[in-house]
Amino acid sequence: MNVGVSLLAVIALILIPWIGVSALGLDSFFGIVIPYLAFFVFFIGLIYRIVQWARVPQPFKIPSVCGQEKSLPWIKYSRLESPANTWEVVLRMFFEVVFFRSLFRNLRADLQGRRLIYGSAKWLWFGAILFHWGFFIVLIRHLRLFLYHVPSILNYIDYVDSFFQIGFPPIYITDLMILGGLLFLLLRRLVDAKVSYISHASDYFPLFLILGIVISGILMRHVYKVDVYGVKELAIGLATLHPAMPKDAHIGTIFFVHLFLVCTLAAYFPFSKLVHMVGVFFSPTRNLPNDNRMRRYVNPWDYPVKYHTFCEWQEHFKEQLQQAGFELDEEWCKGQNVAKENKAA
């Protein structure tokens, strides 16, 4: 059900630009209006999400740790597993974002008869690495279509990426990475009953959508070629805010399908699970140092309680206390006042 709905949605998204461009001739609508609209939604949506998250107070310091905490100087502590200061948090965050360190600890749980057995499971980590790194390098590589002067680093990336020189034009390694990663992540949800049970349409839809982008991109490079020269003309126009459809170039329909799916992804991004790109930086279990015992953490939503100290109480009921024959503890309160003044000074 979830799978079918997501697949149908992506097929519909493929048909929209297909019909729009090849039958209705809405080239500039799908080439200029939709991309600007989508990226406007992407930016505004993400900034809105970031500000919303940043407005939420953090009541407790709750880093999740799995190493020795910093305490006495002669006890070795784990800098990455239990960071004690901001710099160590930055390091931990870096390894989390770049190498998915916590996913590397992923376990699988299986019943063998009546025994629950845990074992190492690196496949999810591996699939995620393939997909995310593939996606990132593909994204960087696309800069060659947007920049008038292509920086030499992009040529190096292109050289390394097509290193094996298989096929013509050569197949990119990152294309295989992203495709392999996506297929693994999709099959995992379809094949593993436990994961399948907790998968929603909002899990399948992005997978099918990105798969659509990747497949249309690979087809465009290897099978249904488009006029890259015209594509770059359009892309530079978009990037320099002087959008115009290339004059005498005929860009194939598959380009508009690819572009429309990318625009859908961009516009959908801030409102879906894909915002984990930003959300990872807002995880209180990751972004806080484990220094609870060194520094007092004040809950920002603590109500400013008005308290009545012993000395104020004594001052208030002084007469009644004296009449009842209680001894007043004025010496102590004097000391308290001195301490308070010193603190204020």
């Binding site: 990226f39 930016f43 900034i47 947007f146 920049l147 008038y148 002067h149 770059k232 530079i236 320099t240």
Partner: peptide, 22 residues
């Protein structure tokens, strides 16, 4: 937020002044 915006608008910055007639 500023880093995020700069990263996703790289094509604009790097084309500033450099883009000429194709």
């Amino acid at each position: 937020i500023i880093i995020f915006i700069i990263f996703f608008t790289i094509p604009m910055w790097l084309n500033l002044g450099g883009a000429k007639a194709i």
